[in-house]
Design a protein around this nucleic acid. Structure first.
Lengths: 214, 214
DNA sequence: GTCTATAAACGGATAGAC
DNA sequence: GTCTATCCGTTTATAGAC
């Protein structure tokens, strides 16, 4: 029973994630989050003293999830890293609203003095650095003129940009297929003997439901 | 003097663009916009009856700018289209805060019932369709397996994703160089005789100031 | 830990004088 | 067309009882 308070915190965090996903940060109200969590607004503020504290706590959840992801990344380098990232894109598609939080918040955060801005800036540095390491480690077959740091940012950009289009229009945009095509072309244009990995890209994720507009 | 009212409108629109860029939509206040425009808040509402009307008007300015851009697009097809887009990325870098509006608003807009959501969804359809047409028109040298519609979304994704990273950390992220590298690789991997265009990509935009972290 | 009640501030929008 | 004054809803945060 000592962890009852902890359970409440998790409950509130989960509710906050859902409401932030639906409305972004500034339009989300503590009352709405509290209602979702089955607690009063004042009760919520007992666990998280301000709205900003709550936001930071939500972002820290993502940080913890990132640790798992980084572990995945260590499992693949060079071309195989792209297979891992394709799986990540597919996971994001299935998670749906939970990734919407971060797209919505990252867009919001480019405004001045947004409480999440420093967090996003730091997160991009960490993520792109991590991908850069993975690319460099498997760069045996890479063309010499490729800048791994720049390429890491490009890969992240493709994932983010596709995610934005998908969130706006999920019926039409198939971000898994689009990322698969991108990764396949990238490998073919950069590596010497990529065919085994290209085959893996084709099968790593179940064939999408072909929601692309006909 | 008959256009005095029109001038006032433009003045308010410009102020709104700046404040939306700084704070996003929901956190921007009419009082702040009015102050920036040198008018009272009630005076502002005489020209734009609600805050949402003002937002729509700002988006319509972008629509008009898009028309010019579309005209540019018609000037290039296939590989040459990417040169045009590289110039666009460079223009966005120089415009700075004015593009920040749309990154901030597009992120915000993925939340439910955001007043700009429909506009962004429609805009992506138009822009990607336009790029798709340009790609297809110059597809003589394109590999047959390339899906031009999907590739158009990918190109837009790269531009948006790089822009987000650049806005968060302009000192470190060089989105022009990153897009140039992407476009060069794309052409080399897709077209039969791309070298003339690749050379154009290298010179179409002045060499960036190499702000990339050392 | 959780609640009710309320403070204190800010938001968009309206009324009406000039 | 522009202003001052004001209404009214919403928001975060606090006070204090239980």
């Amino acid at each position: 029973m000592a962890n009852r308070g902890v359970a409440r915190r998790e409950q509130i965090l989960y509710a906050a994630m859902m409401v932030f996903a639906d409305h972004g940060y500034h339009r989300a109200s503590l009352a709405g989050i509290a209602e979702q969590a089955g607690i009063s607004q004042a009760g919520l503020l007992h666990h998280f003293p301000t709205k900003q504290h709550l936001l930071i706590a939500v972002l820290e959840v993502r940080d913890r999830l990132d640790v798992e992801w980084m572990a995945d990344l260590d499992g693949g380098t060079g071309p195989r890293l792209l297979v891992t990232l394709l799986r990540l894109v597919d996971r994001n598609r299935r998670l749906g609203g939970l990734v919407q939080i971060y797209t919505a918040l990252s867009g919001e955060s480019v405004t001045d003095d947004h409480p999440a801005r420093a967090w996003f800036t730091g997160r991009y540095e960490r993520v792109t650095a991590s991908i850069e390491v993975g690319l460099r480690a498997g760069a045996d077959g890479l063309r010499p003129e490729v800048d791994c740091g720049q390429l890491a940012r490009e890969v992240v950009a493709v994932m983010d940009g596709l995610q934005l289009q998908w969130l706006l229009n999920p019926e039409v945009v198939d971000m898994v297929a689009a990322f698969r095509a991108y990764a396949t072309r990238l490998i073919r244009s950069s590596a010497l003997d990529p065919e085994p990995v290209v085959a893996l890209l084709a099968t790593a994720v179940p064939v999408p439901l072909a929601t692309h507009a006909g």
